[in-house]
Nucleic acid binder design. Structure first.
Lengths: 111, 111
DNA sequence: CTTAAGACCTAGAAGTTCTAAGTATGTGGA
DNA sequence: TCCACATACTTAGAACTTCTAGGTCTTAAG
């Protein structure tokens, strides 16, 4: 019962933006949060998320700031931008549209 | 407002299997049916679908049979297999899981 | 000093679909 | 007859991703 990688890919940016829309965070923690939520569905590796974060930053949907934690360790915090919020909304809407389409096609009665 | 290609990719096999689960059909028509359903969401090109059909056949989820239409033209009809129905069900379930996850993450209240 | 966990990064492999073409047949009009 | 168009299928190569698999550095714990 292996998970469809395309679905993972399709949901990645929405999940990242969704998480960061609530609270700023840093890569390592984002991975953990998502994996917790995803539980048995899939498990992100770290290498999966960093390139995504970089890409979203380059697109202007996130901005970053290095911060020192209490522990003395440095973390790269990601903040969602206004543009990021708009993108999140538009992508959520698109997700919804696809979801409706799939339901319509898969469940539509014979004939 | 360009459509997320990953979402297209993630939904493709479900849509194809879903359509063929109702009635056998051939590539050219499947493209038309899906584009009709998808309306303004996206538009499949023929080149998009044929490789997908070939792949699903290779995986044993579809089987094919050449048939001559009334028009005298030959068509390659695709039939869903038992394995295909199982795959459809499992992929639909997975789609559902991702949908729930996205909703949970994106809509969950602050904190 | 050694190990483990926290935290970040990237090159290259692997896997897709899309683009953009091509082939071939039947229909209908001139 | 000849041309144009819709039907119908196919594939090579480009473009785009993520995943794999490794690496670096720091702090904490023993």
């Amino acid at each position: 019962m292996k998970t469809d990688k395309e679905l993972i890919g399709a949901s990645t940016s929405i999940l990242v933006l969704g998480i960061l829309a609530k609270d700023p965070s840093y890569g390592y923690e984002v991975v953990k949060r998502v994996n917790q939520e995803a539980e048995n569905l899939f498990e992100w590796q770290e290498g999966t998320i960093y390139p995504v974060l970089h890409k979203l930053e380059k697109e202007g949907l996130l901005r970053t700031q290095w911060q020192e934690a209490n522990t003395g360790r440095k973390r790269k915090y990601y903040y969602i931008t206004e543009q990021g919020r708009e993108a999140l909304q538009s992508r959520s809407a698109q997700w919804q549209s696809f979801n409706s389409l799939v339901h319509r096609v898969v469940e539509m009665p014979h004939g």
